[in-house]
């Protein structure tokens, strides 16, 4: 397929003798919103961090537009500039203002001019509703606000695919909504997204592909209706019923 962006093939990752990911296979096409769900410790975050090369996979391939990015001699920073990442703990640069956070990558990595970068940053800050806060420092913002800035920072780099690592898990309940709204907006705007989440409602309503992971392997994947509505495997059923009970 021409519009395949990411292809994960036989990806495995071990920390020492502990195998965290085993033989992961899936594909992300342009415009896909893929939700990765699963219990804590099932390897969801590690998978996402492998995709962004923050962790080096032990074996397997990650094909970005058909080119393997896991080998030696691959320009990892260059690759990462095409793949945005939003973290659970925001990871905004504490020494910079909100605006500066969204500008620095464009200027230093993409080598854009300052004025152009500023205009671009402002556009995305406005998009996530954080334009009034451009002069604030990260420490002065609430969790939800920080996360929205983090999304704007990732968007400002013009990524082809955006990875979300449990973007709402560190937020107070009343702030989850504002972040999910932005993500929903992004999804309907056609952004390709790979989202590790515990928000089943988000997986059901926004994503078009759900991957359920259990103990380092993909247990089941398919459309939200298939995986969430009519799960085939017992593990998936158990996992989902635990969620319903909560």
């Amino acid at each position: 397929m021409a519009d395949t962006i990411l292809e994960i093939r036989h990806l495995s990752k071990s920390f020492g003798s502990h195998e965290v990911l085993r033989d992961i296979d899936f594909t992300v096409s342009k415009g896909d919103v893929t939700a990765i769900i699963g219990a804590s410790g099932s390897g969801k975050s590690t998978l996402l961090r492998c995709v962004n090369l923050l962790e080096t996979p032990t074996s397997g391939e990650i094909l970005f537009h058909g080119k393997d990015v896991t080998g030696r001699g691959v320009n990892a920073p260059e690759y990462r500039s095409h793949v945005g990442m939003v973290f659970q703990s925001f990871n905004l640069f504490n020494n910079m203002s909100v605006l500066e956070n969204c500008i620095v990558g464009q200027v230093k990595v993409l080598k854009k001019g300052r004025d152009e970068a500023k205009e671009n940053a402002l556009r995305f800050l406005q998009y996530v509703g954080m334009a009034p806060y451009i002069n604030a420092k990260p420490r002065q913002l609430s969790g939800g606000q920080k996360q929205r800035v983090a999304i704007a920072r990732a968007l400002a780099m013009g990524p082809e695919v955006l990875l979300f690592d449990e973007p709402t898990s560190a937020l107070d309940p009343e702030m989850v909504g504002e972040v999910l709204n932005v993500m929903q907006q992004l999804a309907s705007g056609g952004m390709t997204m790979l989202v590790v989440t515990h928000e089943m409602a988000f997986a059901r309503d926004v994503s078009n592909h759900v991957v359920y992971m259990n103990q380092g392997v993909i247990c089941e994947q398919g459309s939200p209706a298939e995986v969430l509505g009519n799960p085939q495997k017992q593990e998936t059923k158990d996992f989902l019923s635990r969620f319903r009970n909560n």
Binding site: S81, G84, F87, A154
Partner: peptide, 20 residues
Amino acid sequence: GQTEGAKAIGMTHVQTMIHV
């Protein structure tokens, strides 16, 4: 996390050091 944030937007090790 600061290092990861910087790496995630494509900064090299030197850029991460200098700017973040």
